[in-house]
Simulated scan of single mutants.
Amino acid sequence: MKLIIMRHGQASWSAPSDSLRPLTEAGRHEVRHTVEQLQGEGVNRIVASPYLRAQQTADIASEILGVEVDTINGITPDDRPADAIGQLPEQGNVLVVSHMPLVSALTALLCDGVPSDGPGFGTADAAVLSLEMPAAGLASLQRMLPA
């Protein structure tokens, strides 16, 4: 299976709470750029954090890839990577839309077996992982896609 871990696009700081921060126009543009690079990856499922900016990122991906979005509560910025793994689909080619620092720590946990500092993720960056199933240390980083 492939697991593509993507950080949401650039978001505005003008919102009543962190969970309600919307994408900026630049954020929408960078998300489109990244997702267009994913068109050949065979994505058949998208899961996203419930935060507005992640939902908006996933909606753009859904529009481009023709795949519906499922919301997962356990992949927000403050969630633990080990807990997040347990909520990920166990088959298919899945796009996961989430936040820093979770995207970095989750990538490290899946590839290296420890939730240390993983690769840096700019807004709308994505990591393409190859793995048999989501579990610590079982993934291989195939490539990073910058926005």
Rank of each mutant, 00 (worst) to 15 (best):
G9R: 02
E90T: 14
A84G: 07
N93S: 15
I5P: 01
P119D: 11
S19H: 15
R28W: 00
N93H: 15
R143N: 04
A139W: 00
E25C: 00
Q10C: 03
V67K: 04
H99M: 07
L138C: 11
A147D: 01
P89H: 07
V103S: 05
G118H: 11
W13I: 09
E25T: 08
P22F: 00
H99W: 04
S98K: 05
V31H: 00
M100K: 09
A136T: 06
G137P: 08
T57V: 04
L38A: 07
Q10W: 00
A26T: 13
G74L: 12
M1T: 12
I4H: 02
L23R: 01
L88C: 08
G113Y: 06
E41A: 12
G66I: 08
L3K: 03
Q87H: 14
P146I: 15
G27A: 07
L95K: 01
I5E: 02
P77E: 06
S104E: 05
R7P: 01
G122Y: 14
G42H: 12
S116Q: 14
A136R: 13
L141R: 09
I46V: 12
H8Y: 03
T34N: 15
V47Q: 09
V96D: 02
D125N: 14
T57M: 03
G27L: 02
L23W: 01
L102G: 02
R53N: 00
T34V: 14
A82P: 07
P119F: 06
P115N: 13
P134L: 11
G40Y: 02
P89G: 05
G9C: 06
Q55N: 05
S62Q: 11
V35S: 06
S17T: 14
D18Y: 09
A84Q: 03
S19P: 02
P77N: 07
D83N: 12
V114G: 01
A82C: 08
L88A: 04
L65I: 10
A124P: 03
D79W: 00
V97Y: 01
P81A: 11
P101W: 05
E36V: 04
G74T: 12
V94N: 03
D117P: 10
G122C: 15
P134H: 10
V35H: 05
D79Q: 06
L145S: 02
L145H: 11
A139G: 12
A61T: 03
L52V: 15
G74F: 09
E30L: 07
A136H: 07
D83T: 12
A124V: 03
S14N: 11
N44E: 13
G122H: 15
E36T: 14
Q91R: 14
H8N: 05
A54L: 05
Q56L: 09
I60H: 04
R80V: 11
D112M: 13
A124C: 08
E30N: 11
D59I: 00
S116D: 13
I72T: 06
S130G: 15
D18H: 10
